[in-house]
Design a protein around this nucleic acid. Structure first.
Lengths: 140, 140
DNA sequence: TCTGACGTTGACGTTAACGTCAATCAGTAC
DNA sequence: GTACTGATTGACGTTAACGTCAACGTCAGA
């Protein structure tokens, strides 16, 4: 017998809330807004693994500064449920649009990291000069 | 004589608003909140190039999902105005903390870009199968 | 001097994204 | 049955980040 943990086939609302460290209220809100869809077992929400992934995508989107509406759009990009060519071309355009946004974000994250590096260096320098204030310090 | 554009030594509120495509109200709000500081020429706000940079940092932060409070912290990381070693060490810790956040954001941006790529491929495939629905399509 | 563009300060309104609370129901444990 | 746990649906409250509007100041140009 093997001890590998099987991924659950379904999740309760509080399981998801605990896993992602959010409140059930938030999940219910996403549900109301149609970002998640849930089966009901006598009124009680039950989420499939696919919905759990959607939730992950929503939270990732939030951390990157996307609104819930934008995250909804992004999620909808993953299934080409639209069948006709016009819709597909439109979807393709929006995918490429989002890519532009994300590449900008990537550039800005990198630039911000560079800034932090120099800030860190300044900080370290200031610290070391505090620690050894007189040794070999040639002042004019 | 040369025709190079000298960078202005000062900016009015509407100049900045136009440059960054935001409203003067937003700038005034940042000013109130102490994210920007302004000289006053008979009541009228005047911004230095340094404040203009701060504004850029604020907007970049927003696009990456930072709150105004977080952006304020990040901006404050760039000048080691605190002199004593304790403060500097604390600052250093927070810099490294922010770096963690940013590196996570970077990973997530990259992962999101990958997702978009596969979404694009799916879309393109669906399109091409629509365009040539009968040719060489071997169905079981 | 009057006008118009641009600025100011309140003060209140708005939207997104939940938080909070109350009343209620459904399954389990004793 | 009863008590407890965890879920539900309203309904209203809250916070951040501005928008909007009114009333007013200021300064250059005709």
């Amino acid at each position: 017998m093997n001890n590998i943990e099987k991924p659950p086939a379904a999740y309760s609302i509080s399981e998801l809330a605990n896993e992602f460290d959010i409140t059930t209220r938030a999940i219910r809100f996403y549900d109301e807004q149609g970002l998640l869809s849930s089966d009901r077992r006598s009124g009680v929400r039950i989420y499939s693994p696919a919905e759990r992934i959607k939730l992950k995508l929503i939270l990732r989107g939030k951390r990157l500064g996307f609104s819930l509406g934008e995250s909804r759009e992004i999620i909808n990009m993953y299934d080409p449920s639209s069948e006709n060519s016009k819709q597909l071309q439109f979807l393709l355009d929006r995918i490429r649009e989002k890519r532009q946004q994300l590449e900008r974000k990537r550039r800005e994250v990198n630039s911000m990291l560079k800034d932090l590096n120099t800030a860190e260096l300044n900080c370290i320098t200031a610290l070391s000069e505090l620690a050894v204030p007189t040794r070999q310090k040639n002042r004019k």
